[in-house]
Amino acid sequence: MKKILDWNKYIEKAASTVSEGIVMLKNNNGALPLDMNETVSVFGRIQLHYYKSGTGSGGMVNVSKVTGILDGLLEAGVKVNEELLGIYRKWDEENPVEQGSGWGAEPWSQKEMPIDDEIVKNAASVSNRAIVIIGRTAG
């Protein structure tokens, strides 16, 4: 008997499983939910990259669609600080992501963009909230 892999069934199951998942966060000072009318400043170069690891097979997983944190925020309609995002995009273009080597081509960490007082002051002037995204390999 020949079995045929139906990706749509896997996608449906993955979406169902994720929707039943939970992320525990401490909601200090009513930080969540985000106010969709306010601009949020997103810090961290990993906002521009889906960062997966597992020091084994996790780095070898290939999927047809990936939604990173920034993608998810934008798709949900969150207004992000476009000026700060532009600064990160320019810096990221000039400082390519380290692709790593070995099994799964996983890097251990990434160089982070230096943040000076001017960037922080400008971000604070247009947003009352900030999200910091970090990424590192774990296994």
Rank of each mutant, 00 (worst) to 15 (best):
I22D: 12
I87P: 03
R45G: 11
E20M: 13
A31G: 12
S125K: 08
S127P: 00
D116H: 03
D6Q: 13
I11S: 02
I87G: 06
N37I: 08
G100M: 03
E94D: 13
H49K: 13
M1L: 14
S101D: 14
K79P: 01
A31S: 14
E38F: 01
V80D: 02
N8Y: 11
K52C: 14
Y10P: 01
N122K: 11
G102F: 11
Q110W: 03
E83P: 04
T67D: 08
W7D: 10
G54T: 03
V40C: 06
S16Q: 13
N95I: 04
I4L: 08
L70I: 03
N28L: 15
E98H: 09
N128T: 13
K121Q: 11
N122S: 10
V66L: 11
W103P: 09
G44P: 00
S41E: 05
S127L: 04
M1R: 09
G58T: 05
K65F: 00
M36H: 07
G72N: 07
K90G: 04
A105H: 12
N128W: 06
G86Q: 08
E20P: 07
L85D: 07
V66Q: 13
L5K: 10
N122L: 08
L70M: 03
E38A: 02
R129M: 03
N29Q: 15
G100T: 02
S53N: 08
A138K: 11
A31C: 14
M36C: 04
L34T: 07
I87C: 06
E20I: 11
N122C: 04
N95T: 07
A124G: 06
L48F: 04
T17L: 13
F43Q: 02
T17Y: 11
K90C: 04
G86K: 09
F43D: 01
S57G: 14
G104C: 10
A124K: 10
D116P: 00
F43P: 02
V120C: 04
A31V: 14
S64A: 06
T17I: 14
G30N: 07
K2N: 14
P114F: 03
T55P: 08
G56V: 05
A138E: 13
D117W: 10
N8C: 10
K26G: 09
G54K: 02
Y10R: 02
L32G: 10
